[in-house]
């Protein structure tokens, strides 16, 4: 089964250029593990990087640099063997960030039907990454965002004003768009979510939930 909702070209291009903040790169790369199409799109944009390298103005290295490199590799440690993938129910690279699986995360309940758990990246860059778990049929309060919100479905499904999202689908929502996701009936809906800034929840109940939970 292939994903039907994909990151925008701008997001893929920034991932290929290496300029996305780590949390956004994590969600794009995890989508890539589930989406052959976006792996090919990424490779296509990486080819721009190849062109840029080809066109880069060369800068002479200090004398004997090539010889020093050869010396280093003769005396160097053995070749890099990629480390074995951790045994996990999660695709890499997410598995590297959530090594113990969902159960090892620090879950925080927001009422009986919604829970979140933070996913730590290398440093705090103003983005927040978390796993969101919603009971089948339950809804996340209508909300807007200060910045871009990215949601990747890992299990189950949800629907909002923009469509139906299932495993591998990535929804990219801009700051000025509000949406109201409702989890499908097919088991817990589990998502990786990356937001810029905090969410803005609508409605009295929603604002109360926000005050109580701090999402």
């Amino acid at each position: 089964m292939s994903a039907t909702h994909h990151p925008s070209d701008v997001l893929i291009a920034a991932y290929a250029a290496g300029t996305l903040p780590e949390a956004q790169a994590l969600i794009v790369a995890t989508h890539g593990a589930l989406c052959p199409l976006c792996r090919a799109r990424t490779r296509a944009f990486e080819a721009i990087g190849g062109e840029v390298l080809d066109g880069a103005a060369p800068l002479a290295l200090s004398a004997g640099a090539a010889e020093r490199a050869l010396g280093r590799l003769r005396s160097a440690a053995p070749d890099i063997v990629p480390p074995p993938a951790p045994v996990s129910d999660l695709p890499r690279p997410l598995a590297d960030y959530v090594p113990g699986g969902y159960e090892a995360l620090r879950w925080r309940r927001h009422g009986a039907r919604i829970a979140t758990a933070p996913v730590a990246t290398s440093r705090d860059d103003g983005l927040s990454a978390f796993i969101l778990r919603v009971h089948p049929g339950s809804s996340v309060p209508r909300h807007g965002h200060r910045g871009v919100e990215l949601t990747l479905v890992l299990a189950g499904s949800y629907m909002d004003e923009l469509g139906r999202f299932a495993r591998g689908d990535l929804e990219e929502i801009d700051g000025n768009v509000e949406h109201h996701p409702v989890a499908g009936p097919d088991g817990d809906c589990i998502c990786l979510v990356v937001t810029e800034g905090k969410l803005r929840l609508r409605g009295v109940l929603a604002r109360l939930v926000q005050r109580l939970t701090g999402i």
Binding site: A17, E22, A25, G32, L34, L53, D89, P93, S122
Partner: peptide, 29 residues
């Protein structure tokens, strides 16, 4: 080679990891 350089740059200048999919991952579609 651009991709190798890009990953080194991220590591050296931002002190961040570069999340990437793993072609050997059994969960990779």
């Amino acid at each position: 080679i651009f991709c190798i350089a890009r990953n080194l740059r991220i590591d050296a200048t931002r002190r961040e990891r570069r999340p990437e999919w793993d072609p050997e991952d059994p969960l990779l579609v």
